[in-house]
Simulated scan of single mutants.
Amino acid sequence: MSNLVNVPKSGGLSNTNSNISFPTWSSWIDEMFNRELPSVFTSNFNTGMSSPKVNIKETEDAFEVEMAVPGLNKSDFKIDLDNDTLSISTEVKEEKEHTEENYTRREFGYSSFKRVFTLPESINEDHINAKYENGILNIHLPKKEEVKQKPVRSIEIS
């Protein structure tokens, strides 16, 4: 009994009696590096908190910054103004220890974020204020008087 094997000019072996196709070395390597990694490898698990989303609204008199950051206290925030740069950050550390009969369970956590904004020159830095209410941080950035939009007025032609 003899099995004949065709050897193509490319040098690879193929079995003419089989419908099974084996991946080539290059296609196997491509698949290995192009497949999606599990989310645990692609997530940013070192930060402990994702960067919160920010809404910025401009009115005639000011810019209003809203940041959704539920679950924090107002004392958790640090807001700094350095020249024309406004930075908003927080760092929260939590430790819990529970001891019961034969075991002790310790849990700890750390979360932080920092958002930095370059302010326009039109901001009156002396009157910036912030409040934290119902999980929303609001920062009021008033404009200087000289840059506020003045109402339209009609000019008479003489």
Rank of each mutant, 00 (worst) to 15 (best):
V7E: 06
K93W: 04
N44V: 06
R153Q: 13
H127T: 15
W28F: 11
N83H: 14
K144H: 01
R35H: 10
S21I: 14
A62E: 09
H140F: 14
S87D: 02
F108D: 08
S2Y: 08
A130N: 10
V5Y: 08
L72T: 02
S112V: 02
S111G: 12
S112C: 08
E121S: 11
G11D: 05
V5D: 01
E101L: 14
D30H: 08
K96I: 08
S21C: 05
I139C: 03
E146F: 12
K131S: 13
T118D: 06
Y110R: 12
F108I: 03
I56A: 05
Y103L: 07
V7P: 00
N134G: 02
K131F: 07
I157H: 09
N3T: 15
D80K: 13
S87C: 10
S112T: 06
D126T: 07
T47K: 15
A62T: 06
F33H: 09
D76F: 05
K9R: 13
N83D: 14
M49I: 01
S122P: 00
N138I: 04
A68L: 08
P8T: 07
Y103M: 08
R153K: 15
K74A: 08
K131A: 08
P38G: 05
L81Y: 10
Y110K: 13
E60Q: 15
S51K: 14
K150M: 12
D126C: 02
M1E: 07
S154K: 15
P23R: 11
M1V: 13
L13D: 01
Y103R: 13
E100S: 11
E101H: 12
N44Y: 06
S50Q: 13
Q149E: 09
G71R: 11
K78D: 04
T16S: 09
I29H: 03
R153W: 04
T59Y: 11
P142K: 08
L37V: 04
Y103P: 00
P142A: 08
K144T: 14
I128L: 02
M67D: 00
F77C: 01
R105E: 09
K57W: 02
N55K: 15
K144G: 01
T42C: 03
N15E: 07
E94Q: 10
G48P: 00
S89V: 02
N44W: 06
W25I: 14
K93S: 10
S87A: 13
T85W: 02
P38R: 10
E60D: 13
Y132Q: 00
L119S: 03
L86Q: 01
S154D: 04
F113T: 02
E58M: 06
K148H: 08
F41P: 00
F41A: 04
R106L: 09
I79W: 01
K74C: 02
F113H: 05
V54S: 02
S89I: 05
E91T: 09
V7T: 07
